[in-house]
Write a protein that binds this DNA or RNA. Structure first.
Lengths: 393, 393
DNA sequence: TAGATAAAGTTCGAGGTACGAACAAAACCC
DNA sequence: GGGTTTTGTTCGTACCTCGAACTTTATCTA
């Protein structure tokens, strides 16, 4: 139960009950579609009459559409309802240090369009390039209602101002990306940290996530980012800084980290760490990337395998911290490293079992082969606005 | 924004709007009392008429009472409203390994009655002893409406079943304490972990907590427990296990911990750790307790001071982890150690500043001299049911 | 001292919402 | 072809907030 924040609350009005129940209807349709009004009644506990009125309204607002007529053993046949997947076209933009992916997705999270461009060197160029591509995609599908744009960034975004702060790997110093993108596209824009995006993606689209309300995503790349969903909602912290577990010190005598300290988790468990382990073991392999090491390991290269297993051990070390401290239902590992999960998964889980006595409640899994978890998460971010519980009181 | 959990949701009914707005009224009165209906209108944004009806209802339900008449420069004088502090008598029971405190508090968290008893050796004796004392206190104040009993336990409590699990320091193996207490007292009973209770206490009664919605309590005693409030609500995890940061490993070569691993945070930063540091430095002081060490330090004993400062350093080490990973508004340290906070506070904050680059958003403070943070938290736990945001959708 | 002004608080009709019973529609069974 | 069953709609009731009009109780002004 949440305490009411008297600095930021919302009273209930005449439309509040309808708002709440509409959202429940939308979620039930999303989960069970195709589904009849009668089944919605059974699932929701509302009256038939109420369900009837609400669905009529949602149909007139284009959120739902009627579909085929179903079969029953006896009695009148039900009319199935579906989500109108063209009701909300959402643009997802995933900014990474070298490449930027862009996609147009529908309500159901299906990608209708995808492209990839080299990340523009300045925010100016980024804004104009994105604007152009968004406009051209919108022209191609004029029948679609466009809901907004979500941007995944390798950095932290201030929650209230939506300005972004702390994006060391990107080198941008743009303060008000949100407003500028909104001006040039006419759509609403949301910025989000990439680890949070991964968490949202798994939370809204993960097949295992039914009944889960505490989920942590560990995004492993050059560094490690953590996105947390606790009590069914993203934990951003007061200024969007929450989740930097990658910079928790696990060995104070360890190698230096970019953050200024020594022995941070990501120094031991990121892709860069695996590259370092490999290079230390094979000084001739100076030019190898993490991709190369994954391939070498697949081909049976002993040193590559050891480097990855070492990385996996430390991944487990940090995940043990998350399990002990937060005991979520699920921890999802996202990143290239999951391609070798057959080999590395057991190393991770064994380490966690050994180091955390609360491990029994938490499942540790690798993100599925879903394309682009970051993009998916961005879709979820915008989806939340219509499908999430309204913030009343 | 929270995702709606389709396995556990609540539709909005006719009374939902009233429920929400009543709770907002109650909170506004709690914060601003004495306050007039007109001011409630201004603070809430509701209509005068609506406020009038709601307050009338709350008065008839004994939550509010009318008080003195205020003064204005011109016009009709406002009638002040107050919380009716006798509306909800709450029993708080704080179970610790050796002693159990018990208190009766009113709505405003003021203690009306307190006693302390040696912790009964078995749950059977505990239940009967508590029942007797509760009954006798209730008899003494027949005009009061009794809301329930909250119990703070040195262990973790399963959220859904309210059975308690993992209470190693207590040695009890009672499975259904809640039901048994309810049967003998006729009141509703809630069990909660003591660190969570501390967090609730600070969150609902802390003077600094206005506008704060992310708060972490670090309860330092023989071990270390962590209670987390994120996004304005307690994080319990799927089965109440969240918060065992005390058993996160900060040095894998450290001393053995009761949990079976080596080098857990609490091995370095709990009261027991300080005792160990002192004994290592002064082998003659084998029989000294943590209390003794606090006193010796006050008297200027160099070894005692060093032991405490060493403890404080490691406290900072673990708090840095919480700051880096969760970046809350506030971290509150609770426990005997705060009595030496003038000396130890700077050690803690310096360590955190050095080890966490996100420290700027987080204030680290010692729990005030408020009596019995655990009891206070238990009051808050029961208070939440009436003052918290209702869980709709 | 009487009327104007101002603020607090109440009353009441309008519009929105869920509920629940009655009703209509559309299938199957015998 | 009538009875039964299930789906879906209609409509009156009760509850809620809104907002305007009204009442109450002050002070200010002439």
């Amino acid at each position: 139960m949440r305490k009411i924040d008297l600095n930021n609350f919302q009273v209930a009005t005449n439309g509040t009950a309808r708002d709440i129940n509409s959202r429940i209807m939308l979620n039930l349709v999303r989960k069970h579609q195709p589904i009849s009004r009668a089944d919605l009644t059974r699932h929701s506990g509302l009256q038939r009459s109420t369900v009837s009125v609400i669905t009529e309204q949602l149909i007139s607002e284009q959120w739902l559409r009627e579909g085929a007529v179903g079969a029953t053993l006896r009695g009148r046949r039900p009319t199935f309802l579906h989500l109108n997947e063209n009701r909300a076209g959402i643009f997802g933009i995933n900014v990474r240090p070298f490449f930027t992916n862009m996609a147009l997705a529908n309500l159901e999270g299906r990608f209708l369009e995808q492209e990839s461009i080299p990340t523009p060197t300045s925010p100016d160029k980024f804004v104009s390039e994105i604007a152009e591509r968004v406009r051209s995609m919108m022209k191609q599908r004029p029948q679609m209602a466009y809901e907004g744009i979500g941007v995944s960034l390798p950095g932290r975004v201030d929650l209230s101002s939506q300005k972004f702060i702390f994006a060391p790997n990107l080198g941008w110093h743009e303060e008000d990306l949100k407003k500028r993108l909104e001006q040039v596209t006419g759509l609403s824009v949301d910025l989000e940290n990439e680890a949070n995006a991964c968490a949202l993606s798994e939370f809204w689209f993960g097949s295992y996530s039914d009944g889960v309300s505490n989920l942590i995503a560990v995004a492993v790349s050059e560094g490690i980012g953590v996105g947390m969903i606790l009590n069914g909602q993203l934990v951003r912290g007061p200024s969007g800084l929450a989740g930097e577990f990658g910079h928790v010190i696990i060995n104070e005598n360890g190698p230096k980290c970019g953050c200024g300290n020594r022995g941070c988790w990501e120094v031991f468990a990121s892709n860069s760490a695996a590259v370092r382990y490999y290079q230390d073991a094979r000084p001739s392999g100076r030019d190898k990337t993490f991709e190369d090491i994954l391939q070498l390991a697949e081909q049976g290269d002993r040193k590559a395998i050891e480097a990855l297993e070492n990385m996996a051990h430390y991944l487990g070390r940090g995940i043990a911290m998350l399990v002990t401290g937060l005991a979520p239902d699920v921890i999802v590992v996202v990143g290239e490293v999951t391609r070798a999960w057959d080999r590395l998964g057991p190393v991770v889980t064994d380490t966690v079992k050994q180091l955390s006595f609360t491990h029994t409640t938490t499942r540790i899994i690798a993100s599925g082969p879903a394309p682009q978890p970051r993009l998916r998460g961005i879709i979820a971010l915008v989806l939340q606005k219509h499908f999430g519980a309204p913030m009343i009181a």
